[in-house]
Design a protein around this nucleic acid. Structure first.
Length: 436
RNA sequence: UCCUCAGUAGCUCAAUGGUAGAGCAUUCGGCUGUUAACCGAAGGGUUGUAGGUUCGAGUCCUACCUGAGGAGCCA
């Protein structure tokens, strides 16, 4: 039989034709002399129909005795049917069983409920479920939108190293690795410092890759390995950083709404919440944020950083991402440009996603004055020698510049309405989970 | 590192200190339009580990292990 091979997503273009679809058995409902195998092929799930009277005896028995997640190649005629969830069904004419999962070692993830521990232990199989499939496709769309946005706005992709000789910020939250016999290296927690060098070479750059934080955080908002996109722009001030961050988010949300509606529906995401994401985003200062928090009976003191609850309290008053700028210089990184009119606050901005999803973007304007940068490095007790190259950037044609980092998983979790970041990446790495 | 909660059948969960049970999954039987299909039957257990209290512990106590949620820290 030489039927044309196709996919479930393309089945609608083959109505009336006999085609071949390779995939896996997702589930099967049986009713005596008629069975309904659900075929999954990575592009979708399609209900097939096998009728005993229309098939050779042994073929019908083969189909009827298939087990969940067995790999199969179904051949049959595509038919539009209102009763089918996807709109199309296949009347099965033949099946090639590539590998039949034995009953003695049945597929562990059944169509019923499972606990998170079990599912995380079987993450390599859990990815086959429709929900995980939808999340992965939204993530793909987010990544594609990020790249399209920067690629079409004059940014050059210049990726930064994963191995770094020293910390960008503190040293306590870095993963240390042996670098041959006598050296230590650290896994990057941000490409920003190198990004600044790249920005002085190319004007506008971005890097996009995994970052690592050895913080012992055990919450739904933390991973030890996550993906971050970081743009950096020469001749950009804080307002420009905020403008780009806003434009990027609006672009991403628009793309996901345009191309991933079926996935959002599968995730039961309230699309109206995402349709509200339009420029301009509300912009408030840290000072105002503290006042708002006090009015909501938070006990935050001026000078402290926001906790998870504070971020939720702040964002709940808005239907779109909230930009908070001018944090106390003391709680921010050493390279943050102080406000010339109020040196006690820094020209940094955090973007808090709505619905309590917290900080998805952090960034700001960097110090461009060599003397000030040197002073900050000393104040933070950082090893000056390690930063000589970074200080060079202020010696040879220094310009005001800035950028930000956006956490991909937090962005995906927000767009998908996930309760936990661990579902936003295929194989999450968390403090107490390194497998599978 | 700290706080809270939880570990019972392959999975999700019940079980007043007194004979360990149900649903799903699996196997067998029934059903030609099912939508997490349904109906009937069967098999399936060292109750996370080690101690302790008790006539008797899944249940109470101690320690440890594993996991979950949170705090601090952070995207």
């Amino acid at each position: 039989m030489n039927a044309e091979r196709t996919t479930i997503s393309e089945a609608g273009t083959h109505v009336g034709e006999t085609v071949q679809i390779p995939g896996w058995l997702y589930n099967m409902r049986k009713s005596g002399k008629i069975v309904f195998p659900l075929l999954r092929d990575g592009t979708g799930v399609m209900q097939c129909v096998a009728v005993k009277s229309a098939l050779p005896e042994n073929l019908f028995e083969t189909i009827k005795n298939l087990t969940q997640e067995s790999s199969v190649i179904f051949t049959g005629k595509i038919r539009a049917d209102e009763r089918a969830p996807g709109g199309y069904e296949m009347d099965v004419e033949n099946v090639e069983v590539v590998q039949r999962v034995p009953e003695s070692d049945a597929y562990p993830i059944t169509p019923k409920e499972h606990g998170i521990e079990f599912l995380m232990d079987h993450r390599h199989l859990w990815l086959r479920s429709q929900r995980q499939h939808a999340i992965a496709r939204v993530r793909h769309e987010v990544v594609r939108a990020v790249r399209d946005y920067f690629d079409s706005h004059g940014f050059t992709l210049v990726d930064t190293p994963i191995f770094t000789p020293a910390a960008c910020e503190g040293t306590t939250n870095l993963f240390e690795v042996n670098y041959f016999e006598d050296q230590k290296a650290y896994l990057t927690q941000s490409g920003q410092l190198y990004n600044e060098a790249n920005a002085m070479a190319f004007g506008k750059v971005y890097c996009f890759g995994p970052t690592f934080r050895a913080e012992k955080s055990k919450t739904r908002r933390h991973l030890t390995e996550f993906w971050m996109v970081e743009p950096e722009m020469a001749y950009a001030d804080l307002d420009e950083v905020k403008r780009v961050a806003e434009e990027l988010i609006v672009f991403i949300v628009g793309r996901v709404l345009e191309l991933r509606r079926p996935e959002l529906k599968a995730l039961e995401r309230h699309v109206s919440k995402l349709e509200a994401i339009k420029a301009p985003f509300p912009r408030i200062s840290y000072d105002e944020a503290v006042k708002i928090l006090h009015s909501k009976s938070s006990e935050i003191q001026w000078g402290g950083d926001f906790g998870g609850t504070d971020e939720t309290l702040l964002s709940e008053g808005y239907d779109r991402p909230l930009m908070v700028d001018r944090y106390p210089t003391a709680v921010k990184a050493f390279y943050m440009q102080p406000d010339p009119e109020r040196p006690e606050v820094a020209m940094g901005v955090d973007v808090l996603a709505p619905e309590g999803y917290g900080e998805i973007i952090g960034g700001g304007q960097r110090i461009h004055d060599a003397a000030l940068l040197l002073r900050r490095i000393e104040e933070h007790n950082l090893p000056k020698d390690a930063f000589n190259w970074y200080i060079d950037l202020r010696k040879y044609g220094s310009v005001p510049h800035g950028g930000f980092g956006m956490g991909i998983e937090r962005c995906v979790a927000w767009l998908c309405g996930l309760e936990h970041l661990r579902e936003a990446i295929a194989f999450p790495r968390m403090i107490y989970r390194l497998r599978p």
